Lab assay of single mutants.
Amino acid sequence: GPREVTMKKGDILTLLNSTNKDWWKVEVNDRQGFVPAAYVKKLDSGTGKELVLALYDYQ
């Protein structure tokens, strides 16, 4: 199956793709996968990378 990404509340993840309104593709610890968009919030990183903050645990 697809590689699952797990996250804990407060984690910072790299946002790869947010074109789908329900599932965003993120990368964390060299793993890529989809997380519910409602579970993360975009951060203003000030760099080229888009980052998101995990609002809830997800696994």
Rank of each mutant, 00 (worst) to 15 (best):
P36Y: 04
W23P: 00
K9Q: 07
A38H: 13
D30F: 08
V28R: 08
W24E: 01
D22R: 11
A37C: 05
I12F: 04
T47D: 14
S45P: 08
K49D: 09
K41W: 06
W24Q: 01
K49R: 10
T6R: 11
P36H: 04
D30C: 10
L15V: 06
G1S: 12
V40Y: 01
R31E: 09
V35A: 02
G1A: 12
K41G: 05
S45L: 13
Q59E: 13
L16K: 04
T6E: 09
S18A: 12
G48Q: 09
D30N: 12
D57T: 05
D44A: 12
L51H: 06
P36V: 05
D11T: 05
G33Q: 06
W23S: 02
M7V: 06
L15W: 01
K42C: 08
D11V: 03
Y58W: 13
A38C: 15
E4D: 13
A38R: 14
T6V: 14
G48H: 09
V5S: 03
G46P: 13
T6C: 14
Y56S: 08
T19W: 08
A37L: 02
L43G: 02
D22P: 01
T14M: 08
G1E: 12
T6L: 09
K21V: 08
G48P: 07
S18H: 08
K42I: 13
V28K: 13
G33L: 15
P36N: 04
T6M: 11
R3T: 13
K9L: 04
T6Y: 13
G10C: 04
R3S: 12
I12T: 06
L43E: 03
V28L: 15
N29M: 08
K9E: 06
L43P: 00
T47Y: 11
Y39L: 14
S18K: 07
W24S: 01
W24V: 05
T19N: 12
L43F: 10
G1M: 12
K41C: 14
R3K: 11
N17Q: 10
K21C: 08
V40C: 12
F34E: 04
V26D: 00
K8Q: 08
K49Q: 12
T14E: 07
S45K: 09
A37S: 13
R31C: 10
S18F: 05
D11C: 06
F34V: 05
K49E: 11
D44M: 10
R31I: 14
L13N: 00
T19E: 14
L13V: 06
A54N: 01
S18V: 05
V40Q: 01
K49G: 08
G1V: 11
P2D: 11
P2T: 13
S45T: 14
S18L: 04
T19H: 10
L15A: 01
K21N: 10
T6D: 08
K41H: 08
R31S: 11
